[in-house]
Design a protein around this nucleic acid. Structure first.
Lengths: 331, 331
DNA sequence: CTGTTAGCGCCTTCAG
DNA sequence: CTGAAGGCGCTAACAG
């Protein structure tokens, strides 16, 4: 900038004004500055220097979970990101995706990112990346959970939603089961009866499991007898394997409450005899296969997270879900 | 940092070393610094100041087209982004999505973003946002096109691929047509015969159109008689409308070369009589509906763009496509 | 309308 | 192993 000032025969401040408050500069000086800038190939104030000076970056950081790469394979995560992007675009703020998935270095990356606030995709209570984000003293908004002191939580009431879905899918069931997301960061795949929600590290999964248990109890079903198939990812191929294990251990299985439409479809595909099934998210899959499901808008939740991260009041999404009843639970 | 230094009873440099070269500091000093930092809530060096000092941000900028929000609705764009994210994660670099879609301000946002290089999603030759990105003197990698001096281009040979697809889909056709992406930034929807590729602003669309024309000519088909249905977006509902117009103007339409699998499926859905159809991208849709299509990996192309943007040699993707022949062109 | 001064927070260089 | 000086590029505040 000082080079430009010299070449234009003005002071650095005049150059600065030319870019930031053009009205304050005479047309003559402005032209000289612009010409000098063009000659020297100066494209405007340096963003880093500007951020340093202003004490703000006008950029929102997003942490998309342990494996950034997987996030783009999950349509729900993409919808969530789209919601964030929408708000950032409106406000002219950047959207910085912090690279995670490499292990120990993730923490440092979160600390060292030039952002004003963080939106964190749902994770476990003990996620070190989350701790790092909170430790930076920047505002942190968490989607789904966990709910930490000093952070804002955005998401639906998963327990209530799961209870409603469970009431529907388990209504006439004698041998119900659950297809679940991972219960901890190890992401083991297994089948076990009566999984205690309190032992689950992911708050969203925990709440949904608790909701299904509520529903089972409401119907007089003994939760300790309900097999839970835990899948390591939201992947149909693996879910079908887990479903086969469920069917092997529980021959007359007649109802499956699944934590995603993908998992629900896997259950349907593997089922030999009639089976009541519920999914989650009301995705295209659910519509195409007439799945009963819990509808929610990840896009709106993403937008709410971004709005909250910028310090503005965001709508409460706790009640922003509804049960969509379709043929998969008897119409 | 100087506060921490004072509290710890050391010089600022010792604090700096503690974070950047811990080995260089005695365990004692390190402990004092860490404790003081904890007390004061100091989370480490300020990223902006660090960027200013180093002259680099370790962040890659991505411009996803005129409307950022639409990008997330396009599975191909998402795959592309996933490829970029993968490379960024490996290298520990941030991925900054620059908010566009607001009009005049887009240029400034591109100039003012704190990034070391840009990856730009395919656009028109005259896109001011592209000009802005190039004007910043940062390395620019463009996906698809246009091919500008001083930038790197990553993408397949669309003309050759379209020629191959056209040869297949038009092979036995008497009344062929094309379903195209927009030809300019106005994104008008219309049907016209023999659209001249040279008048098309989007290089990718231009090349594909030219390739279809090549194929038509190879088969002795008079291009000036071939109707081209131009859709404003990659949306099935609109494509069906355009397809109806094509059918209305060309009653015995018997072949459609489409620039995406979505558009191809729209053609199939509207067709009354047997119709040869080809799509583009080899997406799930193509597999599910047995569409002949041009396969390419947007994910790999995204990764290549990112690699090139970081200044490393990236694989040449010009030949990284193949025609997948399926039942939609007669098996 | 334009210029001067000062400092945002950090780290490279060079001296202890 | 630790410290002092200087400057990365910018702009708020205050003259002129």
């Amino acid at each position: 900038m000082s080079d430009v000032a010299r070449a234009a025969g003005v002071s650095p401040m005049t150059v600065s004004y030319t870019y930031n408050q053009p009205d304050r500069v005479s047309a003559e000086s402005r032209a000289k500055v612009q010409q000098a800038a063009a000659v020297l190939g100066y494209a405007g104030p340096d963003p880093s220097a500007r951020s340093l000076r202003y004490g703000a970056t006008r950029t929102l950081g997003v942490v998309l979970g342990e494996h950034l790469t997987y996030a783009f394979d999950d349509p729900q995560a993409v919808a969530f990101l789209a919601g964030i992007a929408e708000v950032c675009a409106e406000r002219g703020c950047g959207l910085l995706i912090v690279p995670t998935g490499t292990g120990d270095d993730d923490r440092n990356r979160v600390v060292a990112a030039a952002v004003d606030a963080y939106v964190v995709w749902t994770t476990t209570d003990d996620d070190p990346v989350l701790a790092a984000a909170c430790g930076t003293r920047r505002p942190v908004v968490i989607h789904g959970g966990p709910d930490r002191d000093g952070t804002t939580l955005v998401g639906i009431d998963n327990r209530a939603a799961a209870r409603a879905a469970g009431a529907e899918v388990f209504a006439t069931a004698r041998r119900p089961a659950v297809l679940s997301f991972p219960i901890d960061r190890n992401r083991h795949t297994f089948v076990r009866c009566g999984v205690d929600p309190d032992t689950v590290a992911y708050p969203v999964t925990r709440d949904r499991l608790a909701g299904y248990r509520d529903a089972a109890r409401d119907l007089g079903i003994d939760w300790s007898q309900v097999p839970v198939g835990v899948c390591s990812t939201n992947d149909m191929a693996e879910a079908r394997t887990v479903m086969r294990q469920l069917l092997a251990s529980t021959p007359r299985l007649d109802a499956v409450a699944a934590m995603s439409d993908h998992l629900a479809l896997a259950a349907l595909r593997e089922a030999a005899s009639p089976l009541r099934v519920s999914g989650w998210d009301d995705s295209d899959i659910a519509r195409e296969h007439n799945l009963t499901t819990v509808a929610q808008s990840l896009r709106e939740q993403g937008a709410a997270c971004a709005t909250a991260a910028f310090g503005d009041p965001a709508p409460d999404h706790r009640g922003a879900w509804r049960l969509v009843r379709r043929a998969s639970t008897g119409g």
